[in-house]
Computed example of a mutant assay.
Amino acid sequence: MDLNTVVELRDARQAGSWRPGDAWLGGGTYLFSEPQPQLRRLLDLSRTGWPPLTATPDGGLEIAATCTVAQLLRHPRPWPAGPLFEQCCHAFLASWKIWHMATVGGNLCNSLPAGPMISLTAALDGSCRLIGRDGAVREVPVAEFVTGAGRNLLRPGELLRAVTLPGRALAGRTAFRQSSLYGLGRSAALLIGLLDPLDGGFTLTVTAATVRPIRLRFPFPPNAEALREALEHAVRPAEYFDDIHGLPAWRRHLTFHHAEQIRRELAEEDAR
C-alpha cells in the first residue's frame, strides 16, 4: 500500500533527532499493509549492518531485530529446543515474500497476540534490548515487553535492537501446540512447554489465546490438577482474546486442552 503521507525516507544511522510522525522501518510488512496517516518519515534500519544471529558466551543466541523469518529458519539449530524455531516460523502461514521480508523485531513490536516470534522468544526466556533516544539501554523480558493486544513497553522513539535467548533455555526440551479456527488461519492458541535442563523445572507459555504472553513456572512438572488451578489463577477472563479468529470461551478451552497435552508429553519424556 502507498503511504501517501510519508514525505521522507532516511537511513536510520543518519536520522538525527526523533520527531512526531517518525517510524522505524524494518521489513515493512506491517507498515505497508494498511493506511498509516500519522506517519511523515520512515527511518530505514536495513543498512545498519547488524548481524542477524550471533552466538553468546553462555551458548545462547542473540537475534537482531532486523533478522528475517527466513534467516532465523535457515540458521543451524543444534540445541534440544531447536525444533521450536521451525514450528514457530511455520505458525506464520505466510508467503515466501513475507518470510524473506518480515523481521523478528517487527513481529514483537506489532505485539499482536498471534505473533509467533513473540511465542518463540517468550517461551525461551528471551530478553529485549531497547535503546532510547538518548542512547540509554534497558533489558526487558519478552513476556513483560508485550502488555496487551498491539501494546508494549516501547517509549516514543525507542528502538528494539535485539532479543537474546539464554543457552540454558535452548538446552531444554520443549513441547508445542497450536490451533486455528481454519486450516490455514491465524493462531487462536499457541502454547509451549519447556523443561529446564538443570533443575527439571517446568514452564508453560500461553500466547495467541491471550492478549499478552502468560508464563507459568513450576519447580517440577505439575500434576493435571495443579496445572489447571494455576491457569485458572494466571489468566483473567478478560485476558482471553476476542476477534473473528476465535471467541474467548473457545480460546480458553484450547488453552486448558493444550496445556494438559504438553504436561503429559514432557512428563512422559522426563520419565524415560
Rank of each mutant, 00 (worst) to 15 (best):
N110M: 12
P156W: 02
D196E: 11
L204A: 05
W99G: 09
P156M: 11
T29K: 03
W18K: 06
Q261W: 04
G201W: 06
S33L: 13
F176S: 01
V163A: 07
I118S: 05
C67W: 00
E265D: 12
R19S: 15
P248N: 03
A249P: 14
A234N: 13
A55E: 15
T147M: 05
P80Y: 03
L159A: 03
I131G: 06
A12Y: 06
E86P: 05
C88G: 05
L247E: 14
G246I: 02
R151S: 15
T205V: 05
R215P: 13
R252Y: 06
L160N: 02
L31A: 10
P166R: 02
S179P: 02
S17M: 13
L72M: 11
C128K: 01
T121Y: 00
H100T: 14
G16I: 14
W79K: 06
R263P: 10
L227Q: 08
A143N: 09
L9S: 07
P116N: 11
T103G: 03
I98T: 13
D242C: 03
P213Y: 05
R236T: 14
G201T: 09
E139W: 05
A149G: 12
L3D: 08
R13K: 15
F85H: 07
G60D: 06
V6E: 09
C128R: 03
H233M: 13
L93H: 00
T164K: 04
T147H: 04
P166V: 07
E229Q: 15
D243Q: 04
A226V: 13
L25E: 05
L153A: 14
F241A: 15
H258P: 08
A70W: 04
G26Q: 05
W24M: 08
R236N: 10
Q36K: 13
G150D: 12
G126D: 02
R19D: 13
L3E: 09
L112N: 11
E8S: 10
E8Y: 00
G157K: 09
L170G: 03
K97W: 05
P116D: 15
Q178Y: 00
Q87C: 13
Q87T: 07
R186M: 13
M1V: 14
A208N: 01
L124T: 01
A149K: 07
A114W: 04
T66S: 11
V69H: 10
C128H: 04
S46C: 11
R19K: 14
R228E: 15
Q71S: 12
P222M: 08
H245I: 07
H100C: 12
I262V: 11
Q178P: 07
R151H: 15
W24I: 12
A122D: 06
A249W: 12
K97I: 11
D125H: 10
E86D: 12
G21L: 04
M117W: 04
L165R: 03
H233K: 14
H253S: 14
A91M: 05
A234K: 06
S179K: 00
L216M: 12
A271M: 09
F241G: 09
L266W: 00
I118G: 03
P52I: 07
T103H: 02
P57L: 05
N110T: 14
L198N: 11
P20M: 02
G148A: 09
G106M: 03
R186L: 15
T255V: 07
T29N: 11
E239R: 01
L181I: 13
P222N: 10
T48S: 14
G27F: 02
D199S: 09
I63E: 02
A136V: 13
T203E: 03
T210V: 01
P221N: 08
